[in-house]
Every structure is written in C-alpha cells, then in structure tokens.
C-alpha cells in the first residue's frame, strides 16, 4: 500500500497551485466581460444597445438548449416553441391583465417548465433523429395553434404592447433599462446553470450523455433526470421568450416559426457545445446571422446556417468557444 501512496503525496501538494494558475485567466476574462457589459450601454447608440440586448435574449435560450444537447446528450428541435410560449405567456399577461413586468417572468418559467416536463416524456423512449422529429412537431404545431385562439393571442396579427419605461430613480433611457433587465436575467440563468453543472445533478446529466448504462448502475434515475433536464431546458427557452417580449413589445405567430428552433440548435453548435461562453457566441449567431444574410437572399439564412454547421463540425467541433482552448493547447504542444 505504501508503494502506491508515496508517489501521490508530492503532486497532491502541487495541485492547488496549478489550479489557481488555470482559474486566473478565466477570472480575468469574466471580470473584463462584466465590466464591458456594464459600460457598453452608455457608450453605444440605442440601436446597438438593442442589438446587444437581443444577443443576451437569445443567449438564454441557447444556454437552455445547451443544457439539454451539450450536457445531457439529448436533442430538441422544438425549443423555438418553448421560446414562443414564454413570449406569449408574458404578452398575454401584459395585454389582458396588466400584470407588472417582473411578474411575467415567473409565470413564463412555470408554464414552460410544466410543458417541458410533459413533452420531455418522449425523450425517455426516443433518441437521436427520432427525438429530433418528435420535438420538431412542437415548433410546427404551435404557429397555427397561436393563430386559432384569436381572442387571447391576437391571431395572426399578434399582440402589440408598450415597452416598459425605466423607473425615474435610475435615470436610464428605455433601451438601457431593458438592456440591464435582460442582463440580469441572462446573468441569473448563467449562474443557475453553472451551479447545476458543478453539482451532483450536472454530473448525473453528463454521465447520462457519456454512458447511460453505467450512469444507471451508479444510481442515476434516468427517467427523472432526462425529463427534468428537458423541463429545465424548456424553462430557460421560455425565460428567453419572456424577456424577448419585454424588449420587442410585440408577439406574432410568424416571429416564431420552426426556423427559430433550428437557428437555436445551430447557435449551440457554432458557439460551442457544453461550454459556458458558447451561449453568448451562439446568441450573437442566432441574432445576427439571419439579418446579415437576408441581405444576400431570402433563402440565405437557412443555407448559410446549414453550411456553417457542416464547416464547424469539421473544422472546430468544439465550436467558437472551444477554439480558444484548442489554440492554447496547440501552442503548449508546440512549446514542448
């Protein structure tokens, strides 16, 4: 026993130092990002602030989808649907009952969580392409459904709301206020997911992704974790939809076509599966790619996102967020 124990003693003493060295640049990057995020709305013109806000909105949805796809190894082509449901819950509450803005968020979370839990049940039986197809029906069915209940949803015309004004004490312009509201939600969602992933729950999800049989032998209840992962993931997409309503102050069925689900999936692939910065990059992709490529051709967004997925899968399977890590790893390898 002694023979195996002695050699491990020295590295154990060294371990904390190396870990601090790894943590440091990450901490610096995070601090720089936070400062930039707080300064940006005062330096940019309102339209740019709006764009940045939308990137944060989509980042929440991408974060949620990544919890399912990148961390648990499931798939969903229906998250645009949960995004839409979150958006409509907020819009209807605001339009009908004049509910205060902040209260629409818990309502949207609750509704999308319950729906996500119910629709997560197919995820127990199906995998891969089959699960993708079943979840895709959520996104496809939703558009005509929203057009049906005209009295509540405003039908094809949708609902037009007024944007919330910044409280006087803040002294902020409307766009800046909305930006900070969304930043708060995005930050909260990121912290929650980070906490989830660092815990027993996150490890159980990763275990399911890597080896279901072994996960079950170690006591992970597959049905529970899969449905709850789906529910949480849907809930985050719903949160994104809710804050989307705050920012845009307009919902209509045609803003949430099934393309949105595909764009969100493309967002996690481009941003980086299973990485913490991936959702931000993915959010930027989901927002900017369609508007930029629409200038070329109406059909360009679909073609470009399809091509990008293929290219990224070949060139950078860890996504944009993974590129930095891969670059530094390559540099280290060259030094050796």
């Amino acid at each position: 026993m002694n023979g195996t124990r002695t050699p491990t003693a020295a590295p154990a003493a060294r371990a904390p130092r190396t870990r601090r060295a790894v943590l440091k640049p990450q901490g610096v990057l995070l601090a720089v990002l936070l400062v930039a995020a707080c300064v940006a709305p005062f330096q940019l013109v309102p339209f740019r602030v709006f764009q940045l806000t939308m990137v944060l909105v989509y980042a929440i949805a991408v974060l949620g989808l990544d919890l399912l796809v990148g961390r648990t190894g499931q798939i969903s082509l229906g998250h645009g649907g949960f995004f839409a449901i979150g958006a409509y819950v907020a819009a209807v509450l605001l339009d009908r009952w004049d509910v205060p803005y902040p209260l629409t968020l818990p309502a949207a979370l609750a509704v999308t969580f319950v729906l996500g839990f119910a629709l997560g049940i197919p995820a127990l039986r199906l995998r891969g392409l089959y699960l993708a197809l079943v979840t895709m029906t959520i996104a496809i069915f939703l558009v005509p459904l929203l057009k049906r209940f005209e009295s509540l949803t405003g039908g094809s015309m949708g609902l037009t709301l007024t944007k919330p004004d910044a409280p006087a004490w803040t002294g902020l312009a409307q766009d800046q206020w909305l930006y900070f509201c969304v930043l708060l939600v995005t930050g909260g969602a990121t912290l929650a997911v980070a906490g989830l992933l660092r815990s027993r729950v996150g490890r159980a999800l990763a275990a399911i992704r890597d080896n279901e049989a072994a996960a079950e032998v170690m006591g992970v209840r597959l049905s529970r974790y899969k449905t709850l992962a789906f529910a949480w993931s849907a809930m985050l997409a719903g949160a994104a939809g809710c804050v989307n309503t705050w920012v845009i102050a307009f919902v209509s069925p045609d803003s949430f076509t099934s393309t949105l689900s595909i764009m969100l999936l493309a967002g996690i692939v481009v941003g980086g599966l299973g990485s913490l910065y991936g959702p931000l990059l993915g959010g930027a992709f989901v927002f900017f790619m369609p508007t930029m490529s629409q200038g070329i051709n109406q059909a360009a967004p679909g073609v470009i996102s399809g091509l990008l997925i293929i290219v990224i899968m070949y060139v950078a399977p860890t996504g944009l967020a993974g590129l930095a890590g891969r670059a530094s790893a390559a540099r280290l390898a060259r030094k050796k």
Partner: peptide, 12 residues
C-alpha cells in the same frame, strides 16, 4: 451519486 441529495433547484 446515490449517497447525495442535491436536486435541480437546490443545485441551481
């Protein structure tokens, strides 16, 4: 895993 309790909400 089986010896711990933390659930989704508590961990988040």
């Amino acid at each position: 895993h089986a010896r711990a309790r933390a659930g989704f909400a508590a961990a988040a």
